[in-house]
Design a protein around this nucleic acid. Structure first.
Lengths: 197, 197, 197, 197
DNA sequence: CATGAATGAGAGTTCATTCAT
DNA sequence: AATGAATGAACTCTCATTCAT
């Protein structure tokens, strides 16, 4: 009975977050009303408030989820022991971004964008964003360090700086994808390769 | 106070936009109420609505202004006839970003971030963002083309792709600056230089 | 208070319409604010808007109700199978008007007057008014036709015209009653009888 | 100088009332804003307020004007020394109503309707309406009295009652004309004649 | 427990009126 | 005298949240 209930609770929770995410993708956090989420989730107001004490908490949960899509990157691509070149690391990351974005249920990267804006005046979301992005950036620093170790990258530069630049390409790609729509992991990969000679 | 000069109208307009921008920097577009803007501007509700038909219109004006900060880049740095290397173009741009961000009256780049989010479901703002950023990116494409012409960049890659990558570093810098706070034009310049060998 | 019965909803609806009607009788549609209706109904703003999407919709409901007071006329007096003379039909109608007007809760005929004015630039209300009054007028046409059939009314005139004239006496009575206050079904009955010889 | 000014003032006054009337015909008193009147009159806010201390005063002036259209009836048709039959008096009155209604500048009878509604909670307008309509009704009483004197109307009925009935046909006609649009002085004349045998 | 009707503070906006120029 | 920008109280309506059933 306890386990069934726990699973049931988890399913309900996901149901609400999924509904809220769909709304947020469509209209943004702020235009989304609790009534929207309630309707979209198929639950009652009371039920939704049984899982989230407030709209802020629900928004934080969606933002968290959107920002946590990078987690899989760590577990899979960037966790490999084989050395990754900067271009390979970038391309793998961007392909992951695109794959996430194209999943059925709507483009979560749009929610990530919302989360960045929200982080400017919402400490909870800012904290999550900082944590996730610092972690991802550290992976790119590691890539830089390996490159410096094997001589493919100049060793006289702070690897942190190189990591900043490589990581910057991820939100830079995401924004161009959503706003201009004419970029792809391939075009970025080619562009970066060309610059690196 | 009838028979008001064009300058007077422009001054009032700026007064309202400045007040609204201060609010938006602090709390974001959506937590900012018209009452906030009215109080902050020192004008009356009617006066504000004499200049902006709706909150949406006012938000669009602030977003427009924030996104248009890149205009000065075109007029100044990137308009020079002397060839700019990718690193120089990037550093000039990021220094401009920082200078804009540190101007008294609050960090406008925070508003730019809001505008990105808003562009996801606001066609007016999306249009402005697309226009401004397409223009800025073209400058980086031009930099790439010059580099290819003078042999400092490999000529077998589409310069558009190189422009995408270089341009991506701008929002990537901006986001890291606002979120993690540990980047600088210098650190980006060093990081990019190291990658380019 | 979920799971509310249909009767409960209907009662709430009537509660709001009754409150709004009281306000409209006192001050007219336009001087009546939603705050007035909310206070008078004893409900909250949200509750009232749960039953009526807008003030316009509420006004239409009150107007509809006021204009629909003639419905009972059809069911009762004018539906009788025994032939009615014009004078009898008129007197019955006016007595019904007075009875309606003197009901506790305020004189609804004042609202009917408002509805006439509103019908000039409100299609919904104009439609209702047209429908109800066309129906009532048709009853008077029927009275005229019976009169022509049994020889008490000249047969060479269009019964529609006679119906127009008889029906005209109803708003003519109503207006004089509200404005000058010195008319009664009896005085009208006597006056019409005298004219008919 | 004084006379010119007086004429100028009168012209301005008429200009404002005419503008306000056009608005009131189109949208009713309440949907008409002072800004509408100001725009329509081609004057400035200050100018309009130089002639009318408040919107209420302006509304009263339009209502007054609309209700005073019956004045010409007294001066012309109903003032004749030759005896008028009820049917003739009615037809003359209704023809005057139609003529007034069809004048260029919009149907003033729509404003009269507004005035009736307004009279329910506006003593100034109620006073004017009472005065004008009492006067008009008295004319119909006089017609009744003449009829009784010359034997064409039964003498045993209070002529006031007959006047009430005859007068009632005027607003009854006006309302049907505006609401149902299928009546004419002729149809009323025929209808009344038929009833009178 | 789950429901969803009800709450009510507060949002955006309007508009009659004023008064410095 | 005339202007019309400015005022600000008041309006309609929304929506996050609660709690009686």
């Amino acid at each position: 009975m306890p386990k069934v209930t726990v699973e049931h609770r988890a399913a309900r929770y996901d149901q609400i977050v999924a509904a809220a995410r769909r709304c947020a993708i469509e209209q943004g956090f702020h235009k989304t009303t609790m009534a929207d989420v309630i309707r979209e989730s198929g639950l009652s107001a009371g039920a939704v408030y049984g899982y989230f004490k407030s709209k802020d908490e629900l928004v934080a949960a969606i933002a968290d989820q959107a920002l946590s899509t990078v987690d899989k990157l760590f577990e899979n691509i960037l966790a490999s022991d084989q050395p990754l070149t900067p271009v390979a690391a970038l391309e793998a990351t961007l392909e992951h971004v695109v794959q996430i974005a194209e999943q059925p249920g709507g483009d979560v990267t749009r929610v990530a964008l919302q989360a960045w804006a929200e982080a400017m005046h919402n400490d909870a979301i800012a904290g999550i964003a900082r944590e996730k992005y610092a972690l991802l950036r550290r992976k790119f620093v590691a890539v830089a360090e390996r490159g410096q170790a094997d001589g493919t990258i100049r060793a006289d530069a702070d690897p942190d700086y190189i990591g900043q630049v490589l990581f910057a390409l991820v939100p830079g790609f995401l924004l161009q994808r959503l706003l201009l729509g004419d970029v792809s992991p391939r075009s970025f990969s080619i562009g970066l390769s060309a610059l690196l000679k």
